[in-house]
Write a protein that binds this DNA or RNA. Sequence first.
DNA 1: TTTTATTGATTGATGCGTCAATAAAAAATA
DNA 2: TATTTTTTATTGACGCATCAATCAATAAAA
Lengths: 197, 197
Amino acid sequence: MPKVGMEPLRRRALIDATISAIGERGSLDVTMSEIAGRAGVSSALAHHYFGAKEDLLAATMRHLLSELLTDTTAALRVAETPRARVSAVISVNFSDKQFRAATIAAWLAFYVEAQKSPGLRRLLRIYAHRLHSNLMSGLARLLPRADAEHVAEATAAMIDGLYIRRALRDGIPNAASAIALVEDYLETKLSQAARAR
Amino acid sequence: MPKVGMEPLRRRALIDATISAIGERGSLDVTMSEIAGRAGVSSALAHHYFGAKEDLLAATMRHLLSELLTDTTAALRVAETPRARVSAVISVNFSDKQFRAATIAAWLAFYVEAQKSPGLRRLLRIYAHRLHSNLMSGLARLLPRADAEHVAEATAAMIDGLYIRRALRDGIPNAASAIALVEDYLETKLSQAARAR
DNA sequence: TTTTATTGATTGATGCGTCAATAAAAAATA
DNA sequence: TATTTTTTATTGACGCATCAATCAATAAAA
C-alpha cells in the first residue's frame, strides 16, 4: 500500500478531519483516534506527522486563519472603492465557507483554548489585528481617524458576536441577515458623518 | 468536625471555586479535585453534593445566569424612562461583577460546552432570550417594532462580541470604553429614527 | 539497503465516580 | 437524664475507563 508522497495529503486530510470532528463534537476535546479515524488512518500516523495533539490543533488553527486571510485579500483585490473594501471584509466573514457550523464551532473552541495556550493566543491576536487593519484600509478613507478606529472596533465586535449567536443556533439564522445587521450599522455611521461634514 | 447545615455553604463554595478555577485555567477541563481543593474539601464531597461533574457545571452556569438576571431586574427597577432601561441593561452586562476575567472565561467556556450539552444550551438560550426581552422593554417604546427588534439584535451581538474581545485581552481594555461603544451605536440609531419622524 | 508509510499493541498517566469507614450532631427511646 | 439509633458530614483509597504518546514490526517504494 505505501505510496510515496503521502505526507501533504495526509496532513491536509487530518486537518480537515480535525475541523469536522470539532464541529460535530462542538469542542476541542476530540480524541486523536476520532480525528485519525475520520481521516481514514490510525492515530499513530497522526502522531507521526504532527507530533503532539496540540501541534495538530495549532496547525488546524493556522489553516483556518490562513484560509480567512486568503479569502479576504482576494476580496479586497477586486474592491474598487474604500466603501467596497469594508463590505468585502464583512462579506468574507459571513461567506458560506466561513460562516458554517463546523468552522464556527472550531473558532469558538480555539478562543477558549487560547486562554491556556500562549501559542494559540498569539494566532488569535494576529487574526484580530488583521481584521482590524483590513477594516481600516477602507474606513480610514471614509471617516476621520478616531471615528474610523471606533467604527472598526464596533464592527469587529459585532462580527464576533454574530458568530457566537450563530453557534447557539438562536436568532440571526442566516448569513444574509447577519450581513444586513453589520451593513446597517456602517451605513448609519457613515451617513451620520457625512451630515456632520 | 461535622457540623450540621453545611450543605448550602459547601454548595456555594464549590460553585465559587468552579468559577475561579475555570477563570484561571481558562477552560472547562478543570478537574473535580482542583475545584474541590479550592473549596477546601475533598473531591468525594463535591460528588456527594452535586453528583456528576456535569451537574456541578450546570449548577455553576445556573448561578451565573441567575446573578445576571438578579442584577438586571434590580437595575431595571430604578430606571425611570425607556431610554434609561436600555442603558441599565447594558451597564449591568459590563458591571465589575460581570465583566471580570474569570466570569467571562466561564461564560465563554460554557458557550463551547453548550454545543455538547443540550441542558446547557437550553440555559444559554434562556439567557439570550432574557437579554433580548430586557432590551426590548425599553426599545419598544422608543422605536417602531421592527426597528426595535433589529437594534436589540445588534446590541446583543455587540455585547457578546465585546465579551470575546475582553477574553482575548486585546483591544477594548475596560468596561467604560465597551459601554461607550454600545451606547454610541444606540444613540446613533435613536437620533436617526427621530430625524426620520 | 535505505527511506517512507503505516499500524497494532502497549504503556503510563489522568481523572471521574464509588464505597466503606469515621465521627459528630440530632432524634428517639428508655 | 442517659442511652441508643439515625442522620449528616466527610474523606482516603480504589476501580475502571479513557487517551495521548511510543515502539517495534511490516511492507512497499527508491
